[in-house]
Design a binder for these strands. Structure first.
Lengths: 345, 345
DNA sequence: ATGAAAGCGCTAACAT
DNA sequence: ATGTTAGCGCTTTCAT
């Protein structure tokens, strides 16, 4: 299939007997032009259905007004929300967005960066893949002075701005809530230990335990590979423990939901036998039975804030010095945990 | 923030004492070059961390190897799956993808098309917004010979290829299943009547009724605006009917889930009091209580097929003549409907 | 086997 | 108020 011909300034110029520069000036509403000329040109451009060639323009002004976004997975509701926030806000400020997914692999993450850089995006918003445990590709674009920041899945060693949730605080909130609602042995089901959120949420978990005078018990920390099989294995392990926990806090909702599903299938009652809580507030967490207590992370807001800061840096509104933006999370108590004795919500 | 400098062919040329054209040839592995020269250049390019400027290249060859995608909503799991399929497959064929969302508005749909066309994408994959009820913008790009196709939310009057699910067939399957499992009065809760899928799924519904010798009863067709409030209103209406239906087929899962939630809150039992079924197989439909009988639409597959056909057309592998690709859906029986009496699945 | 030159569509500095 | 010219980084014909 051959693409149809696009009208160029040259053609308008020819038709009207002006030079190309006059056309260019008229179309960007330059003040030094005769109003009549301007009108004639603008009308003709409309008539001929002229659309500027952004490629040529970008090449000339060496700015594309386009940002690149890399997320691990577009089908994750959380990242989709981030993207939505990024796009809406970027558009509002006159920028376009190119979105890529790394499918949670380092190789694709690297390839995506290459492509976006080659496409001359003005800046990048990156959320790291689960697999990413070395950071040469990020130091590389850092050294090449390509503006970027990290959001949600970040690494603290790279000297760029990052936008995260208060993961420690959220985990503290939910662990504390489990303890307040009567749990004595609260377990933490983590993801792979090198993940930023695994670490941060564990800190919040420990923080809450300590506040209740409880020592960290290594039997009460399990690590899932975050696959459904892995999660179910953890669910089995817990079910088979001599002394089961009475509350389980999972690093992310899908883990909690897999565990819940398995437990239901073998007759374990939630929250009567064990209370269960997740993190993220995925749409599914609200509709499982019983609805899952979790911690809400507003993804749309995160995307908006992240892109807003990057654009501020690009446009010299914000300093280039890296900053850390931390969004607060909200505890969402539901029926998978016991209710507070007094002020039951 | 100022973007760092990017290495150009000119710089490699200068460093090595060759002309720019020789660099260009070496980097695209032209056969008419001396192997030593080629090696020297390729090595140097790597050493200097050269990355081609896709903007310049695209301007020159007037092809961007980039496709534009417009979906109503990125946060919808179904469309996220489509995008995922589009991106994975497009990348495999050496294309990039720019994604835009119309947020279900005609204005943004038009704006997105403008932007993508200005960005010189080689082709477009479009899924129409709910609001889109006039098609000038599509006829416009059709007349300008910009290759595009429609998927999922299509319009049949535009002479371009379209990729859809067999909506009629899916609705037939699920209505038939409701009737087979003992329902006598099956209701259809539709979306706005000008939506393509509203119409198609109604056809399937009627088809199944007819097969069971049942006349279409206009009391048993309700139209929701697809907002949560609208859905709940329908749920109330149904609950208050003198003669309630004994089975309800909703055009999309979220409608069914809103209805289910409301019914549960007022003590209506599903499927005992009324059976309930949806369409799409959203992740939530599997985890509600009871799990929702629905019709699965493989979004990833749809995306893949759509982009594959468009690329085939672009590259002259497929004819430019519009075709209609129809994907089959799969009934997913769950506990929100009664089981088949004999061969219970 | 390599180089020179033209040009993709646009902008902007420099004329006039 | 408008035109001329150069050039963004690249590819490609034509020349040698």
């Amino acid at each position: 299939m051959k693409k149809g011909h696009q009208v160029t300034m040259k053609e308008i110029a020819k038709k009207l007997g002006f030079s190309v520069s006059t056309i260019s000036r008229a179309l960007k509403d330059s003040p030094e032009l005769h109003p009549d000329t301007k009108k004639k040109i603008v009308d003709m451009a409309k008539e001929m259905n002229y659309q500027p060639n952004l490629l040529a323009q970008s090449l000339r002004i060496s700015r594309t007004n386009t940002l690149g976004v890399i997320v691990p997975e577009i089908t994750s509701h959380f990242f989709a929300s981030c993207i939505s926030g990024i796009q809406d806000y970027a558009n509002k400020r006159g920028y376009n967005v190119m979105i890529c997914q790394s499918n949670e692999t380092l190789d694709l993450e690297i390839a995506n960066i290459r492509t976006l850089v080659s496409s001359q995006v003005d800046g990048l918003l990156i959320s790291l893949s689960r697999e990413t445990n070395q950071y040469d590709h990020l130091f590389d674009i850092y050294n090449r002075e390509i503006p970027f920041l990290l959001f949600d899945r970040v690494n603290e060693d790279i000297p760029v701005s990052r936008v995260t949730f208060n993961d420690e605080g959220g985990a503290y909130q939910v662990t504390k809530y489990l303890l307040e609602t009567g749990c004595k042995r609260v377990m933490y089901v983590s993801g792979p230990e090198d993940l930023y959120i695994s670490k941060k949420r564990k800190e919040g978990y420990i923080h809450a335990l300590n506040e209740f005078g409880i020592e960290l018990d290594s039997d009460l920390v399990k690590i899932s590979d975050l696959t459904t099989e892995g999660n179910i294995n953890i669910a089995k392990e817990i079910a088979n423990m001599k002394t089961r926990p009475d509350g389980v806090f999972c690093m992310i909702d899908p883990v909690a939901i897999d565990i819940l599903t398995f437990w239901k299938s073998i007759g374990i009652k939630v929250p009567e036998d064990m209370a269960l809580a997740g993190f993220t507030n995925n749409p599914t967490s609200a509709v499982v039975e019983p609805p899952l207590t979790t911690v809400a992370q507003p993804g749309y807001e995160m995307g908006k804030l992240a892109v807003s800061h990057l654009l501020d840096q690009l446009e010299g509104i914000a300093s280039d010095d890296p900053i850390s933006i931390v969004l607060e999370t909200t505890l969402v108590p539901r029926q998978s945990t016991k209710a507070l004795s007094k002020n039951e919500k």
